[in-house]
Simulated assay, not measured.
Amino acid sequence: MRIAVVSTMGATPWGGSEELWALMAGHALDDGHEVALFVHRWPELHPALRALSERGARLYRRGRSYALAGERMAGRVLRRPVRLSPPPVLSSFRHLYAWRPDVVVISEGTFFSFVHVGEVADWLAESGTPYVPLVQYLSDAYGVADAFRERAARFYGQAARVAFVSAGNLESGQRQLAARLPNATVVQNPVKLVDAGPMPLPPAGPAQLASVGRLAVGDKGQDVLLQTLGGPAWRGREWRLNLYGTGGDEGYLRALAGMYGVADRVAFHGHVTDVPSIWAANHLLVMPSRAEGTPLALLEAMRCGRAAVVTDVGGNVEWVREGHTGFVAEAPTARSFGAALERAWAARAEWSALGRTAYDEAARRLDAEPGRTLLNMVTGAARAESD
């Protein structure tokens, strides 16, 4: 079978959203399928892409499309959405059309990001080629225009399958579309950790709180966390906040820590690839996200035996049970997250037991081969469409 993967991610060369389809592609090559990958061009080829290419995957890297700027300009002039399709000879996806895959996986870093490969969506509809959108993230913060909602409902509704990484995202997606998706299912992202059992907590001392994720407050909500820890209740307590990650909001967060008078208790560690080293040094995951899929950082923390304080967004509550594996804030606000963090602080003598329960929950529920699961779903959907 010929399997094509089209990644919509263009902000960075690689991210957690790419790990699942890359695993799937590896299994497909192992099974004798042909694989073609369509990704953005970056100065350096990511090692995962290089490895797949060396194993036989076709790799096509595309530049930025002239159509996006042209569409925006025409839309401003005409005061309505405008679609521009490049002639086939200029299309970044001409090799996809010529290859004629049996099925196409559209990897969407965010719901609705198929729009960034709109010409592919048009070709899929015209050619009748089966396709599977893989949705890694969804935010409820944005409104959707009626015309676009109708287009999106057609795109997702006509897919062979639609894969979300959390049931919460699936339900929110249907609400945003105002349409049910009977073809939708939930898959898991890979957790690449050697299972060595739950890690012991760090030695006694100040409570070490870890925030793991991009420094992007619009999604990850670290500003809410600093507001909470800068409140009067936390001034007399012994704690340290460790931020792991990089992003455009680092300067803002440093300034915010200074404004709240907690800069001496907040450390910025940058991007750390050694996940066990994070949890060897920290007692508790704190995740005040405004939007999520199912965060890999949460699953990694659970796999290392750590409880978490999270917000009720995305798939968080599908993994964190109040008082059993962590604590849940109903909303990504300082009041709500602060209340959840208070409950966690009052139960700090139980953090080790909560972490053990979190580890057991992760061990029981995590898919041992999520890439294989996705491949079976993709090939099964393609065969069903061809029957």
Score class of each variant (00 low, 15 high):
residue 373 T to N: 07
residue 16 G to S: 12
residue 35 V to K: 01
residue 270 G to R: 05
residue 170 L to V: 07
residue 228 T to D: 07
residue 184 A to S: 11
residue 182 P to Y: 04
residue 320 V to N: 01
residue 22 A to K: 00
residue 17 S to A: 15
residue 138 L to M: 11
residue 195 D to V: 07
residue 370 P to N: 10
residue 220 K to V: 08
residue 106 I to T: 03
residue 98 A to W: 06
residue 251 G to H: 13
residue 101 P to T: 14
residue 371 G to K: 01
residue 103 V to M: 12
residue 99 W to H: 14
residue 141 A to H: 12
residue 273 T to W: 12
residue 160 A to C: 10
residue 287 M to D: 05
residue 168 G to R: 00
residue 185 T to L: 11
residue 124 L to C: 07
residue 118 G to Y: 01
residue 233 A to V: 14
residue 199 M to E: 15
residue 251 G to E: 13
residue 227 Q to I: 10
residue 129 T to G: 01
residue 217 V to I: 15
residue 84 L to D: 05
residue 22 A to F: 02
residue 68 L to Q: 11
residue 372 R to K: 13
residue 314 G to C: 07
residue 194 V to H: 11
residue 349 A to N: 11
residue 371 G to N: 00
residue 189 N to E: 13
residue 48 A to E: 14
residue 384 A to N: 15
residue 224 V to A: 04
residue 349 A to G: 14
residue 223 D to V: 06
residue 360 D to A: 12
residue 305 G to C: 03
residue 216 A to D: 14
residue 65 S to M: 06
residue 192 K to P: 04
residue 100 R to G: 11
residue 307 A to H: 03
residue 380 G to L: 07
residue 98 A to E: 15
residue 105 V to E: 04
residue 287 M to P: 04
residue 190 P to W: 01
residue 223 D to F: 08
residue 228 T to H: 00
residue 154 R to E: 10
residue 329 A to F: 02
residue 196 A to P: 02
residue 54 E to F: 08
residue 319 W to P: 00
residue 6 V to A: 02
residue 311 T to I: 05
residue 191 V to Q: 12
residue 278 I to E: 05
residue 274 D to V: 12
residue 154 R to S: 10
residue 135 V to H: 01
residue 32 G to A: 15
residue 7 S to A: 15
residue 104 V to D: 02
residue 367 D to K: 10
residue 267 A to M: 11
residue 39 V to P: 00
residue 132 V to H: 00
residue 321 R to G: 06
residue 375 L to G: 00
residue 145 A to M: 05
residue 375 L to C: 03
residue 241 L to Y: 05
residue 224 V to T: 07
residue 272 V to D: 05
residue 163 A to M: 08
residue 18 E to A: 08
residue 273 T to G: 09
residue 361 E to H: 11
residue 382 A to E: 10
residue 117 V to E: 00
residue 224 V to H: 02
residue 43 P to Q: 15
residue 202 P to S: 13
residue 271 H to Y: 11
residue 220 K to T: 04
residue 124 L to D: 02
residue 137 Y to N: 13
residue 274 D to R: 05
residue 257 A to M: 09
residue 62 R to A: 15
residue 53 S to I: 01
residue 72 R to K: 14
residue 4 A to T: 02
residue 99 W to C: 14
residue 83 R to P: 03
residue 27 H to M: 07
residue 1 M to E: 08
residue 91 S to K: 13
residue 36 A to M: 13
residue 273 T to I: 05
residue 349 A to Q: 15
residue 340 A to G: 06
residue 341 L to G: 03
residue 324 H to C: 10
residue 145 A to G: 08
residue 262 V to W: 04
residue 359 Y to Q: 02
residue 144 V to C: 09
residue 377 M to A: 13
residue 383 R to W: 11
residue 61 R to G: 03
residue 384 A to D: 15
residue 193 L to D: 09
residue 64 R to I: 13
residue 173 G to M: 03
residue 361 E to K: 05
residue 361 E to Q: 08
residue 201 L to F: 12
